[in-house]
Design a protein around this nucleic acid. Structure first.
Lengths: 349, 349
DNA sequence: ATAACAGTTGTAATCGATTGCACTAAAGTA
DNA sequence: TACTTTAGTGCAATCGATTACAACTGTTAT
């Protein structure tokens, strides 16, 4: 049923040209007020809806943007996407999502099909396996705005929105030091990713600033998995000396560590304080809530969207790359809070 | 730089018509093999990329689908979207995401802009506040395939993919009964949503089947929040008699209940067994992992996508509505597992 | 009275790909 | 030889909206 109404239908009905209808609808100053009102009224009556495909073909602008992430159902990524959607939706943009499954080949594929669909911009967090960046540079060459969030690559002309991972690492470590911890271990992630390198450096910097010796063996590469956290604890407890705190760059590894420590009968946070990273939803639900560095993902998405909007508004003129760095927020919870434990003990007496 | 190559560029270079190029690229049988090969080769050399907008305008098919959910960063919804994306991506579709924030007005708005962008189909989970369904019926009238997942409305001609919430409620309750629980309370959700009504009925049916008395006061409407779960426990413990098990239609309320029971010094699962619903990621990470009914969201998404594909393949001919009902899976964990506790006690001796 | 001009509106090309119909040349048939 | 058939290709319209340029009307300046 519902036949699509076009500007031609309106122009026929009013015995005027389609050009006039188009101009009237676009509020072109050359059209008389009388005609404009008539067209607008008739369009409403006929329930006219602009064909956005035709418009897109003519203008080259689709009002669609693409977001490329490893997995859409990771809490962090879906929250960033939420931020992007909420910021762009009022501006008439639609958000297309793509997953790479952490595989560069998919990343390349997704970029190509997105470019082919003529999206107006791309937001992405690179896959862990991405080394070569030709496919990313191609986006810039095609003049499509590209914005990295969280996981970026250093490529000229590409804007990015990240958190200050160095600071995150620093804050976490500083907090543990202030809780009286002297031998802090660090569970790092895949060092191919800048974010993990930065967290590690933040850790080292805090140790240095507070004159706490950073034992090299205590810097370990641990996967973002519960079991990896447990294993890492076992590895540590096979060494000649053990840490009195863990700063894990992953909440999952932190959880695994806590579980393993409990199994060993080691008290958290009294004997070993633990801090994670990402503020995964589960961290605050635990019986022993886990201190964690919040990456403010929704804010990150919003900011990425804002950078995009600036870039296309300012368009050709000043399309300078913009690097936004958000400050992470340390959420202190029981897994590291010795003060709190002391208080609780006192109040129980 | 990178000028867009069109079929006209190819046709000029080869001194043939654009029509021939188009047909060659589409493998039209009327074109000679020689010409086809020549065109294909030249197209590859010139790095030709088909303009999907032009094609979409001509064919009326955009290869985009829209997904409307309350919030994209809820674990359940983002997992469904993942399933949809993974199933549709190989077929060349892109997934556009929209959020309603549980507000009908946004729902209406999103549907309108999606229809206007000429997506090829819509997947949606209705907002809690949705009562009137005119905006949804409009989609059907415009002949756009619509598929409900999880939260549906009963409207003729609309396919849906849901889990058997009745069975989920039944399984959870049956499990508690088999653990020896006699006085099982049920935390229901917003009864405006079919899913919560069904879970409740499953609970009642199991109670009846096993001759366990369902105390009316033990069926409570509890929000999907931790605090609501705690409050509900307090309400129950103000009654003359208390339950020995809780089947909560929400994992969050279940968690709140467990926390409150612990505060009261009541042992879970020994004194009160608890089962949640949704299998939120946190349920399995808890120190006391929570038994929960898994809704298999990724599978749900995949199935919804399959229904969509069937509908557009079979197109006009047999566009009969299809109702897919997936079987939920009960993940038994410690919060309800008395057998396990017994075993643990024995093994400790 | 006529040129000049502002204000409106129409004509037609354009964005790229697709496709019904027409046309050509070569092959087949009588 | 004359006519039909068929394979292969081109022409031009179409999808719907936009826009440079042309054209027309009525008004103002000279």
């Amino acid at each position: 049923m519902a036949e699509k109404i076009t500007i031609y239908d309106i122009s026929n009905k009013l015995n005027i040209s389609a050009a006039t209808v188009s101009r009237a609808l676009n509020n072109n100053p050359k059209i008389s007020l009388k005609t404009k009102e008539l067209v607008l009224k008739t369009a409403a009556e006929m329930n006219y809806k602009q064909n956005r495909l035709a418009q897109a073909l003519k203008s080259g602008k689709t009002n669609n943007v693409g977001v490329i992430v490893p997995y859409i159902n990771r809490s962090f990524f879906s929250s960033v996407i939420r931020g992007i959607e909420e910021e762009l939706s009022p501006h008439g943009y639609h958000v297309i999502i793509c997953q790479t499954h952490e595989d560069v080949h998919n990343e390349i594929e997704q970029i190509n099909t997105l470019l082919n669909t003529q999206i107006d911009g791309i937001f992405m967090s690179v896959a862990k396996t991405t080394q070569d960046t030709k496919h990313i540079e191609k986006v810039v060459k095609e003049n499509t705005p590209l914005i990295f969030f969280d996981r970026k690559k250093n490529i000229d002309g590409i804007s990015s929105v990240v958190i200050d991972d160095f600071k995150g690492g620093y804050l976490a470590t500083e907090h543990l030091i202030k809780q009286g911890c002297k031998k802090i271990a660090h569970f790092s992630g895949d060092l191919n990713l800048e974010i993990y390198r930065n967290r590690h450096e933040g850790y080292l910097a805090a140790m240095k600033d507070y004159d706490v010796t950073a034992i090299p063996k205590f810097s370990m590469q641990v996967n973002s998995k519960i079991e990896s956290g447990s294993t890492a604890i076992n590895d540590l407890w096979n060494l000649s000396e053990q840490p009195d705190a863990i700063f894990s760059a992953s909440d999952y590894a932190a959880l695994g560590a806590i579980q393993e420590l409990k199994r060993k009968g080691i008290k958290v946070p009294e004997e070993v304080g633990v801090v994670g990273f990402s503020n995964e939803p589960f961290t605050k639900y635990m019986e022993l809530p886990i201190t964690s560095v919040d990456q403010t993902p929704v804010e990150m998405g919003r900011n990425a969207a804002k950078v995009f909007l600036e870039q296309i508004e300012g368009s050709k003129t000043l399309s300078i790359e913009k690097k936004v760095v958000l400050t992470p927020k340390l959420n202190i919870r029981e897994s590291s809070n010795r003060e709190l434990i002391k208080k609780l003990l006192v109040s129980k007496e």
